[in-house]
Amino acid sequence: MIEFNDVSLVYPNGTEGLKNIDLKINEGEFVVIVGLSGAGKSTFIRSINRLVTPTSGSLLVEDEDILKANGTDLRRLRTKIGMIFQSYNLVKRSTVLKNVISGRLGYTGTLTSILNIFSKEDKLLAYENLKRVNIEEKLYNRADELSGGQQQRVSIARVLTQKPKLILADEPVASLDPPTSHQVMKYLKQINREDKITTIVNLHFIDMAMEYADRIIGMRAGEVVFDGPVSDVTEQTFEEIYGRSIRDEDRRGGVEDE
């Protein structure tokens, strides 16, 4: 469970990234954060694993306030939180296996990991997770030999290898084409269902948000302006969140292309 208690974040240049956020995200939920770029979606998601540090309030992850954690405590909490990025963030010159197994680093001793010694279980776990996203045949390929969609699947496998309680995905499909986007979202949804991993995804495509979310949180100018189950959401809700009428570019489309 994640609990935001009056969380605010003011950047050093005075920009308010988050304004008095107060909400709870329950175990196993699939939450999609929507909003225009600059609305604070990224700041929201990055606060949860402290890639950015809110300036006030408390943020409980698994009953621990991550805003107070530092050093070893912070790293231990972060091992429970997997993160997927828009630009995949794989080490391009390393093999797929090495990228995926780097998800175990938080659980592995410094010296053994530097010497590249991982237990058999860890290696098998990495392989199993690659199988889950159907990319196991690329095990020994270099990451830069893969297409964007394949790289994003590898990054999902890396996150799974971390055995997280929670997955954060910051615009995971923004660099992908429509069919591949749906494929990636389907894997995320499937993992959320099967492993009961709480999943929080930033998206700006309203059709994808509607299709995959259990719950939608709308943000504008650092504030939560909508929070409710996907059944309560209509096109009008999005118009209110975005503060303008819906345009074509707000839809990803392409689900029937598969």
Binding site: L51, G82, M83, G106, R158
Partner: peptide, 8 residues
């Protein structure tokens, strides 16, 4: 950043 986020 990705490695940092995984607790390395």
């Amino acid at each position: 950043e990705a490695l940092e986020a995984s607790g390395a």
